[in-house]
């Protein structure tokens, strides 16, 4: 089958995955906007959220058989909530343990990166030890029937739900940053932390909130990810790098940029994976990253958190 026969299917798959990248990318972008720091351990927040949601949904799953109707919705809601909670908790702990002591000391930048790497190594392998090192599957939460056909491409309930939830989260975050007092604080700190302090913004609180919001999104995104793929202790790395790429693609520190970047990257990867070879899918994202860094390091929409939101 040629590329064009598959085009719409690839587009839909790409958008679905891309919306997940976007959700994770927001975590990178928010923290970057506020702290000017790449949170290397964000992928582990995603992983822990994913496990949390998956285990919660699985615990409530009736024995045998795919749930249906209202029960599916209920399970997804529980999974999302628990996943988001676990993600938020992980991000909060991460900030407290790996970053805050360094901030108090005004440690050099290198220290933060290294500390994050350490935290990430710790979390990945502790998860491996506690949850085993095999892939963990979440049974289907929906009858995986096709809801409708779009330009000859099948759209399953599951992908529709994932896409819809992801988009809802993106819009919600955008509203949060653009339209609330909290968002105003976040933008103020992102633009100029010193001035923000003078204006009475509690920077410490903003930083924690930023981590927690990023964690909520990544955790919920982790559960969505586990619905289509599966979870494992090392699952964070690849989506993490891709989400970071998405954040840079859109302009790191820029909320709408991260969303755009995520969707674009999902598409590029989906088409590219079909045209080349699926096992090199991950390489594509990396090449995209290097290409943007070389051609337009400030990303498509520019870097300021305050600007686009």
């Amino acid at each position: 089958m040629g590329f064009f026969d598959q085009f719409w299917q690839l587009t839909i798959d790409g958008l679905m995955v891309g919306s997940l990248y976007a959700v994770i990318a927001l975590g990178y972008t928010l923290v970057y906007g506020v702290l000017q720091l790449i949170n290397f351990a964000h992928s582990e927040v995603f992983m822990l959220g994913s496990f949390g949601g998956l285990f919660a949904a699985r615990a409530l799953l009736p024995d045998g058989g795919v749930p249906g109707g209202f029960q599916s919705v209920y399970l997804v809601a529980v999974g999302l909530a628990v996943g988001a909670l676990c993600g938020a908790l992980a991000a909060f702990t991460l900030e407290r343990v790996a970053y805050r002591p360094l901030r108090r000391r005004s440690a050099p930048r290198l220290a933060y990166l290294i500390s994050a790497i350490g935290a990430s190594l710790f979390a990945v392998n502790l998860a491996g030890k506690e949850f085993g090192r095999q892939n963990v599957d979440l049974p289907d939460l929906f009858h995986n029937d096709t809801v409708f056909t779009l330009f000859g491409a099948d759209v399953s309930t599951q992908s529709l739900v994932i896409f819809a939830v992801a988009i809802a989260m993106l819009v919600g975050l955008d509203r949060l940053v653009a339209g609330t007092r909290l968002g105003q604080g976040i933008r103020a700190v992102a633009q100029d932390a010193d001035t923000a302090v003078l204006m009475g913004v509690n920077v410490e609180r903003i930083i924690i909130v930023t981590f927690v919001v990023g964690g909520l999104l990544a955790g919920a995104g982790g559960f969505l990810y586990a619905m289509t793929f599966n979870a494992s202790y090392s699952m964070g790395f690849v989506p993490g790098v891709k989400a970071f790429t998405a954040a840079v693609l859109g302009g790191i520190g820029n909320v709408r940029g991260a969303m755009l970047g995520g969707l674009l990257l999902g598409l590029v990867e989906s088409y590219g994976g079909y045209l080349f070879q699926a096992s090199y899918k991950d390489v594509i994202a990396f090449l995209v990253l290097v290409a943007i860094l070389m051609i337009r390091p400030s990303g498509l929409l520019g870097e300021r958190l305050g600007r686009a939101a």
Partner: peptide
């Protein structure tokens, strides 16, 4: 495989207490 838990902890601890 579990060694890396400790290595991770070592890295974070060093960064906090003895960079």
């Amino acid at each position: 495989a579990d060694r890396y838990i400790y290595f991770g902890a070592v890295i974070v601890t060093m960064m906090i207490f003895r960079p």
